[in-house]
Design a protein around this nucleic acid. Sequence first.
DNA 1: GGTATTGCATACTGATCGGTATCGGTTTAC
DNA 2: GTAAACCGATACCGATCAGTATGCAATACC
Lengths: 193, 193
Amino acid sequence: MPRGTTTRRPKTVSALLDAALDLFADQGYGATSIPDICERAGLTKGAFYSNFPNKEALFLALLDRSWAQRAAWIRGALPGRVAPDSPALDRQWTLVSTEFSLHAIRHPEVAARLVEHEARVRAELATLVAEALERAGRVPTIPVDQLARMVVAVTEGSDIQVLTDRAAGGTAHPGLGPRAVSGLLEHYSEPDA
Amino acid sequence: MPRGTTTRRPKTVSALLDAALDLFADQGYGATSIPDICERAGLTKGAFYSNFPNKEALFLALLDRSWAQRAAWIRGALPGRVAPDSPALDRQWTLVSTEFSLHAIRHPEVAARLVEHEARVRAELATLVAEALERAGRVPTIPVDQLARMVVAVTEGSDIQVLTDRAAGGTAHPGLGPRAVSGLLEHYSEPDA
DNA sequence: GGTATTGCATACTGATCGGTATCGGTTTAC
DNA sequence: GTAAACCGATACCGATCAGTATGCAATACC
């Protein structure tokens, strides 16, 4: 049982993660410095190095937190839909999560972590897909895990397209992600016999 | 007609772009410094600032060159396929191009440039899709431009998935991109009457 | 309430950053 | 052959970086 102050630390960590999320989304991971993060959090480098050994450790912690938050959000938002729509497009999340994918591709030891997380997400999504198809009186013609993979791929690709168009001042359209998803689900299933 | 030397400059620019491509793919755009690029190119900062005002200008020039090269490559590789397969997965290209999308989302003036380029690519791809469907005796049930959009989205999303799995040491599978593409093309077309 | 411990601020270091100014070898034009 | 223009190397600047060491106020325990 430690003796000194322990209640401050969680608040500090949370403030640092909040600040990092904003800055990674705005400037990118590589372009964001540790002093940047501390300043935005209203703290100093002492607080940072007291909680993380370096920037990458904070990146990983940030993703653990974001994954947990988003998983909870998706679990609440998705079920009951006829087809598993893509969850609401979150600009900040898309930017940070995509950048993390790139980071993982460049750093194999990090990639393992990402793949594991994606497998869990896909497993959940696969059951949702299976349920949705069942409600629609259809059965999949390929493994639902492969369907989930396609759904994730097309959704993420579409999100990037939409954000790009939006940044260029294009009219705010919903993107073709949902339509492509429902198309894939219909095409790779058939009416139950 | 200028009087001095002009043959050296193109070689220098090319060397800088080559070096930047390698480094942006390996470390990311934000994490790559100008001295890094110069060193890898076997040049000094004098060469850099003699040809580019800053790192972003080089990024844009690099993408212009890469777009031209890839467009030429795709034009030679794609036609004649029954379905427009995704071109061979190029790790370096996927990393840099995805990072540029993120950069564009963060910088609207850059996004306009990217959107314009993507529109050109999609136009070409749309004609290929139309030809492929025609050869297969089918007609699209939604605008071919929308089909092209879906194809691009699912391909890029799948490429990221494959590279991540590969980085994590997963078995080298082709990914579900091509299958999803053909599924979309079939689902959003019907036999010609 | 005394005290040990915690947790962040402060201060510092060596390295590296982006950017500018200038210098000198090289090439082209005539 | 020679002069002019080019173009990249060198040297330099102030700012900022990642990381460490230490100081000190706040807090939890007894």
